[in-house]
Structure formats: structure tokens, C-alpha cells
């Protein structure tokens, strides 16, 4: 999917959310909807404007700066100085195909951590996640991964459970912590 198509999908998704907000808001009293409806309506107009400008502008430049149009300033002024200061681009920038795959893996990892926390509670879930991440994804030696996971979950247990006395969630499955 091209960058423009992705931007369009996102803008349409935001527009759908804003329309839903406006529709739902009409079920509330006049005072309860006094601020939400104008905010949602104004945002919707902006999304439509964004859709128009990103589909009529150059495909290379999807960032249309209203401030630049109004003040005739170059939005790149600041960026250029920072770029000069930073000098190098990240060495590990990935090509688009690899990037999409890594994004999918990143979201999956997040879902795995969330699932572990919901099933086993934060302490046990975090221990297993750090161990698995270190060994399988981070390609550490399993002994190092075990040390790291023990260290992280141990420090978190000490800080949150022992010192801060946080009432811990034990997960859907029965667990030791």
C-alpha cells in the first residue's frame, strides 16, 4: 500500500470516529454536549481538509503546513538545523518490507506481554516475557536471559509489592504471585 493510501485510510478512520462521537453526543443533554460536538465537528472539518490536501498535493510531500502557507515561513528551517546537528541517520534503518515485518513482530510481542500479564499477573507475566524476549528475540544466552528476567521481575516485586505495597493482580490462571 502506498504512503498516500495509508494516510487516506488513517484519515478516514479518524473521520469515522469523529462522526461517531457527534452522533453519540446528540444522546446527551445540551450542557454535556456543549464542548464535545464543536470540538468533534471542527476536527472533522480538519480531517476533510487534510484528505483534500494530501490527495491534491505532490505525492512526495504529504505534509501540508498551514502555518507555512499563512506566514510564508519554511517549515524546514528548524528541521534543517536539527538535521545538521544530528548529522547521521540511524545506522539500522530498515527497508519498507523488513520494516512492515518488524512492525508486525513488535505488535505481536506487545500482545504476548499483555496476554501473559492478564493470564498470570504482572510479576510472573513480566518474568516469562523478559526471559522469552531475551532468549528468543534478543538472541542472548539463555542463562543471561534468565539473569535479566530474574533481575527485572525481582526489582519490580521489591519496588511495587514490598516497598509501595501495591495490591497485586494474580491473573486469570492461578499463580504463585
Amino acid at each position: 500500500m502506498s504512503r498516500r493510501a495509508q494516510e487516506n485510510v488513517l484519515a478516514l478512520a479518524i473521520a469515522a470516529i469523529l462522526i461517531a462521537v457527534i452522533v453519540i453526543s446528540f444522546h446527551y443533554g445540551p450542557r454535556a454536549r456543549l464542548v464535545p460536538i464543536p470540538v468533534a465537528a471542527f476536527s472533522l472539518i480538519l480531517v476533510l481538509a487534510q484528505l483534500v490536501v494530501q490527495n491534491t498535493g505532490s505525492p512526495d510531500d504529504l505534509h501540508v503546513d498551514v502555518l507555512e502557507m499563512l506566514t510564508r515561513r519554511s517549515a524546514r528551517e528548524g528541521v534543517a538545523s536539527t538535521a545538521a546537528a544530528t548529522r547521521q541517520r540511524p545506522a539500522s534503518e530498515h527497508p519498507p518490507g523488513t520494516r512492515a515485518r518488524r512492525e508486525a513482530i513488535a505488535f505481536t510481542l506487545l500482545a504476548v506481554l499483555l496476554g501473559l500479564v492478564l493470564l498470570l499477573g504482572p510479576i510472573v507475566g513480566i518474568f516469562l516475557f523478559v526471559l522469552g524476549y531475551g532468549g528468543a528475540v534478543g538472541r542472548m544466552r539463555w542463562s543471561s536471559a534468565l539473569m535479566l528476567s530474574l533481575g527485572v521481575s525481582g526489582v519490580l516485586y521489591l519496588l511495587f509489592v514490598v516497598l509501595l505495597n501495591t495490591q497485586m493482580y494474580h491473573g486469570i490462571l492461578p499463580g504463585p504471585l
Binding site: 464535545p36 480531517v47 481538509a49 487534510q50 490536501v53 501540508v64 503546513d65 498551514v66 502555518l67 528541521v79
Partner: peptide, 20 residues
Amino acid sequence: SEGSVIKGLIAAGLGILVAF
């Protein structure tokens, strides 16, 4: 709103609505 004030305003609008 580097690059797009429109997007910055949309983001702010969404933030306001999430707070509601």
C-alpha cells in the same frame, strides 16, 4: 505541528475528546 498544523490540530481535538 512540524510539517502539518492540520494534523497537530486534529491530534489535539482527539486528545480533548478522549479526556471526555
